[in-house]
Design a protein around this nucleic acid. Structure first.
Lengths: 335, 335
DNA sequence: CGCATCCGCGTGAACGTTCACGCAACCCAG
DNA sequence: CTGGGTTGCGTGAACGTTCACGCGGATGCG
């Protein structure tokens, strides 16, 4: 009665076990499992049944070794908890799935990890890498060897592919709008982490100077709670700001909260503009004006770039494949 | 001068190529690449340099075939765009990374995909599966054969492991609170998709009947926008509801928006309670009262369950490993 | 009846790595 | 000068699968 259980213990069943139990050869089992031609329906069915009874499932390693095909890509992101990244990851997964690729996700934000750690974990497992890798993009490319890497928002080159964002353009849109509203004392609420932090605020500073606007910069961790605390401090200061441009929408949301808590009307007393355009913005009160990115386009672009690099049609001559995307100002209520 | 580029074209460099170019044997290359003992420092360095020049990276298939070790798990979720799922996924990834496992994510919400499709894509690639698989959990387990599957929020059994939620408990908490506030005409804003939909509203209905409360149910797609539209219709009806319990926080957020747009005060005219406790709730105005789950605990539990199943210490006798988690009422402003 | 064809199935070989050995050269103590 | 240990490296075997053949028997047609 005991079904000769090749349970979780003991070696897994192999194709030879199935062949022996069915009284056929390896190749016939292969034909049965993969629905190939050259096998009678009865044999096929019998082999499939026996395979199922034995709990047989083919080794992906052996299969991969001999076929060599299947592509799997690594996706390294700093924090799935920040709504921006799942929005991006979602489109990457969609684009990859559409190509028959699969996606191994690594979130290096937990603990004290860095992008380099994620790349080190991913490198032995994948054929290509996409990720927010700054400031360790070059290290990641080294770990991946000849396999293509697409780095997003990474100021340093060193990867086969790169996608960056035109922060000067974004800053111009936002600051022009704030100026048009009559804001004279604008603050940039910057992140204090990651390499991209600097580039956003630097662009804003450059644009502000060019336009003769005053722009003060202050920093906080890139979370809503930290931004809220930071803005709460700011709101108590002597000369109040009348406009805030935030590093991202999450920080903008925190700013909104803090301003309301301290009795400031938004946008009446202080206008707020976020960045990246995550769906969250529409649910806030007031709804968040933001520099929106077409988030699904970002993921599509990254996977498309990777496809070009994998097929060798891009960057054969050592030229780096580089895409620059632009934000768009979406006017809602907060500014 | 041209570095005999074994570019993206042509076969990848193998360990034998490196061995030949270095004038040593396979095994010595292995020793050099894996930092093993039994090799002189000079040889190690030379081999590593040559390997790097050749763009050599070891085949994960061959390695996996011979070592058999590395665990990779599949994570099947319906929609990365719904903030609940990344919150959950984040903790799964964290727990898996901590064990040295890697996570292959599949989002089956795009297109018209079902959980069964995701399982079919994932099955050949992973050693175990975690996911929101209802109503196709049994199908997923069949595809995985003897390899363990942990299904979340799946009413049907059929998987080796299962994590469910005590919706009766949740409903009691919420409805008691609403009753205490004096609500007499409460609505359950249900999702119209997925198998879990039914179980939440059914539990609420049972609890309401038990308590002699009136509870009407209406449905919408489980997104903020759809919920907003549905509640907008509801708000225009003759006898107004004075309390809403939503399928999830996202739908609750939409309800908030709709109520405010139609001039209803929350919680004054109508109280709103969400479900699952995603971070978003704290950013809304008014802040969302919700039936919160310890989201990180859910992921930890799923991975822990999987670990037990993989090691064989659980469910050896055919008994299914089943965990039931409870929601907790977090009072904020909306109810 | 003879020949070609097809159907159903089996047998080496190969994929790229690591593991378990084996082996020569060298060092050092007795 | 001899024996035993160490150091540095190489050689078969194995992991589990698919690919490219090969082969006997039945069936078709002239």
């Amino acid at each position: 009665m005991t079904p000769r259980s090749t349970g979780p213990k003991g070696k897994r069943a192999t194709i030879l076990d199935v062949a022996a139990a069915s009284g056929v050869s390896r190749q016939t089992v292969t034909r049965a499992m993969n629905d190939m031609a050259g096998i009678s329906p009865e044999t096929r069915e019998r082999v499939q049944r026996i395979a199922s009874e034995l709990g047989y499932s083919p080794s992906r390693f052996a299969k991969g070794l001999v076929q060599g095909a299947k592509v799997s890509i690594g996706l390294a992101i700093p924090d799935l908890t920040n709504p921006y990244f799942p929005a991006f990851a979602s489109s990457v997964v969609e684009a990859a799935t559409g190509r028959g690729w699969n996606v191994v996700v690594d979130d290096y934000g937990h603990g004290t990890g860095s992008a380099a750690d994620a790349a080190a974990r991913l490198a032995p497992q994948v054929d290509a890498l996409i990720g927010y890798l700054a400031p360790h993009a070059d290290e990641a490319q080294a770990l991946m060897g000849r396999r293509p890497v697409v780095a997003l928002d990474s100021p340093d080159a060193g990867t086969a592919g790169r996608i960056s964002f035109d922060y000067h353009h974004a800053a111009r849109l936002a600051l022009a709008h704030l100026a048009g509203r009559g804001c004279t004392n604008v603050a940039f609420l910057d992140s204090n982490q990651g390499a991209p932090a600097g580039s956003r605020s630097a662009a804003a500073a450059a644009v502000a100077e060019e336009a003769g606007m005053q722009l003060t910069r202050f920093q906080a961790e890139p979370s809503a709670a930290a931004a809220k605390a930071a803005v709460a401090l700011l709101a108590g200061r002597a000369e109040p700001v009348d406009g805030i441009l935030a590093f991202n929408d999450l920080m903008a949301a925190g700013a909104l909260k803090a301003l309301q808590a301290s009795g400031n009307a938004v946008p009446g007393d202080c206008a707020v503009i976020g960045m990246d355009g995550i769906p969250l913005g529409e649910l806030l009160t007031p709804e968040l004006t933001t520099l929106a990115l077409d988030l699904r386009a970002v993921g599509r672009a990254a996977v498309g770039l990777l496809e070009g690099l994998l097929s060798g049609s891009l960057a054969e001559g050592g030229t780096e494949a580089h895409l620059i995307l632009r934000h768009e100002l979406v006017l809602r209520q907060s500014a």
